[in-house]
Design a binder for these strands. Structure first.
Lengths: 127, 127
DNA sequence: TCTTGACCTGGAGTGCGCTCCAGGTTGTTC
DNA sequence: GAACAACCTGGAGCGCACTCCAGGTCAAGA
């Protein structure tokens, strides 16, 4: 993750992968799928990711990690490209996902209860 | 989910699916994969699920819903079949998964923060 | 000049967890 | 006794999100 002088105009794919935790292949895949705007290139055609790209990929990762699908993310990106008129739809999309994430937390809290119940059983057996 | 008199000796696959939220196909799949002990059969060869089966499938569902893989669940089941001597390993497996679930909750809490941040932005724009 | 390494492209392959299908049996209903 | 519904089996197929691959370009170092 050492930033070389080559990277004054953006991060190399390898550095980007290191910074975001998203593999080079996956970064290219996201770009193909329209989840990342076409990345600027160095003179040799290699990608150079901007700091905005870093922030955006971190958002993507956050949303993916919480179960938003590629399809939904693509929709969200499309709306972003279509300008301000789509803001209310984007907001709705996020609000829907927010409820989804809260539901996921509830499921997991319930799971913890069940696991703890089982664990007290195992611990009793072993005492 | 109406319990017919036919089902005094156990639930039909359809009722089981209704009760657990796990499809008939998936129930068979779990049985094939060793996640459910071979289910008792009616005289015509049809499965009859016991109330213990119901409880167990609910546990399976809970663990699956929180990301435990089929492979891990199979391991857990194998240990269960091998008797008391495996209890400490089962406990470890659950404790590991417990930590996993807590990490999932943390990821989701972070996601909520990010989503809320974005939402305040959209709401400000719209005000 | 040759090699090496990081990257490029389009497209094929992979792993997981189901989900569906064809062809068959059984039991009930008209 | 014909039709229908619910189930059975082994095995094929599917959708998703990557992940890998072959074959190529380019720039820097020995």
């Amino acid at each position: 993750m050492t930033t070389t002088t080559d990277e004054v105009n953006g991060l190399s794919p390898a550095s980007m992968a290191a910074q975001t935790g998203v593999s080079i292949d996956t970064l290219r895949y996201y770009e193909r799928e329209g989840l990342i705007d076409p990345v600027t290139r160095a003179s040799n055609g290699h990608r150079r990711y901007s700091s905005d790209d870093v922030l955006w990929v971190q958002v993507l990762r956050c949303l993916r990690d919480t179960g938003m699908t590629i399809e939904q993310l693509r929709r969200y990106c499309e709306l972003g490209q279509q300008g301000e008129s789509t803001e209310s739809e984007r907001r709705e999309l996020l609000e829907t996902h927010r409820r989804e994430v809260e539901a996921q937390i509830d499921v997991r809290r319930e799971a913890l209860r069940l696991i703890d119940h089982k664990l007290t059983f195992y611990r009793r057996e072993q005492a």
